[in-house]
């Protein structure tokens, strides 16, 4: 039975055009910890992706501490894994441990976040999403949606100073720059949380004459948007109809809102960083093919046209 499973798995792996050798790979993954639902989903998806490719994935939870990550990497090196995935909790301080990995000839792939090493040769590749691009996708969707009509947009920013927030703002601003009919009238931080998103939206509604002049809301993440949707409903507005919504992340709950017609669009920050990373490693090991230094993940746009309830069902058990 087990042999049969193995054979099937191998066959499947072969089916996705990867050599059979890949089945023997062991990869150590130093995960940050369970800081958010997205992070939990990333872990779940990583396990599934590894299983799909018949790779043994050892996950070490660092509980948001760099020293734990460094320890985990050292232990992976000692175990002689074939590759190390690192979702770095901070950008600096990785040089020495990455050098150790390099000396042991173990390739390192960064997931989700980039680092500032002294030399880019310390890691094989980084698989990350481009948050500027995410903002731009959101902005482009809105521009297309409103066409030439004038539109006042309010923005719920992420935590002040967070690079994701800065980048998502930048991308959105770029996208609407060429559309003078779209005006960003208010922008405040909602700290990436539902309750702050709701509070900030409440004040926007009051400040913009009961919300009648707001044409669209752009939120740097879905959680803030879910809070904002509640605020709009309580103020007697109809989010998704009177007011367009577009946010980023694609967490399950936003699809529920979308199915109810209360949200319009979300840009996915895919939790599947491990998939492309595994493909790169397998290719590197089998064919000695060096991947590009940066593998950008897809920033897919979801709207009500994408069967939101179905997406919700597929995502709800990932651990978001």
């Amino acid at each position: 039975m087990r042999l049969k499973t193995l054979l099937t798995a191998t066959a499947l792996a072969a089916g996705v055009a990867v050599s059979a050798q890949a089945a023997d790979l062991t990869v150590g993954f130093s995960q940050i910890g369970s800081e958010s639902g997205w992070r939990a989903a990333e872990t779940t998806v990583s396990k599934a992706e590894a299983k799909k490719r018949n790779v043994t994935l050892k996950i070490a939870d660092a509980q948001q501490k760099q020293e734990n990550q460094i320890k985990a990497i050292r232990s992976f090196i000692a175990q002689g894994v074939d590759a190390i995935f690192l979702a770095p909790v901070v950008a600096t301080g990785w040089d020495s441990v990455l050098k150790e990995a390099k000396e042991a000839k173990i390739p390192v792939v960064l997931l989700d976040r980039d680092i500032d090493p002294s030399g880019k040769d310390l890691y094989l590749t980084a698989v990350t999403s481009d948050s500027v691009h995410e903002g731009k996708v959101a902005g482009d969707w809105l521009a297309k949606q409103v066409g030439g009509k004038p539109c006042n947009v309010v923005e719920l920013q992420g935590t002040v100073g967070a690079s994701v927030a800065t980048n998502r703002k930048k991308g959105f601003d770029t996208a609407i720059a060429s559309h003078p009919n779209i005006k960003l009238v208010r922008s405040q931080t909602g700290d990436f949380t539902r309750s702050k998103g709701k509070e900030v939206m409440e004040s926007f509604i009051k400040a913009e004459g009961g919300g009648s002049s707001i044409c669209a809301v752009y939120a740097h993440n879905d959680d803030m948007m879910i809070g904002a949707i509640q605020a709009m409903k309580e103020a007697g507005l109809k989010p998704g109809k009177d007011v367009l919504t577009v946010s980023i992340d694609a967490v399950p709950d936003i699809f529920k809102a979308m199915a109810a017609g209360e949200a319009n669009a979300t840009v996915e920050l895919t939790p599947n960083m491990a998939g492309p990373a595994l493909d790169a490693i397998i290719d590197y090991k089998a064919n000695n093919k060096t991947p590009p230094k940066w593998i950008q993940t897809d920033s897919k746009l979801f709207t009500a046209a994408d069967e939101p309830m179905k997406v919700y069902e597929s995502k709800k058990d990932l651990g978001y």
Binding site: S36, D191, T193, R194, S195, K196, K198, D223, Q230, D253
Partner: peptide, 12 residues
Amino acid sequence: DIRGADANNAGL
């Protein structure tokens, strides 16, 4: 208020 419990951020 948010019809949900956000263990990471509630009361932070």
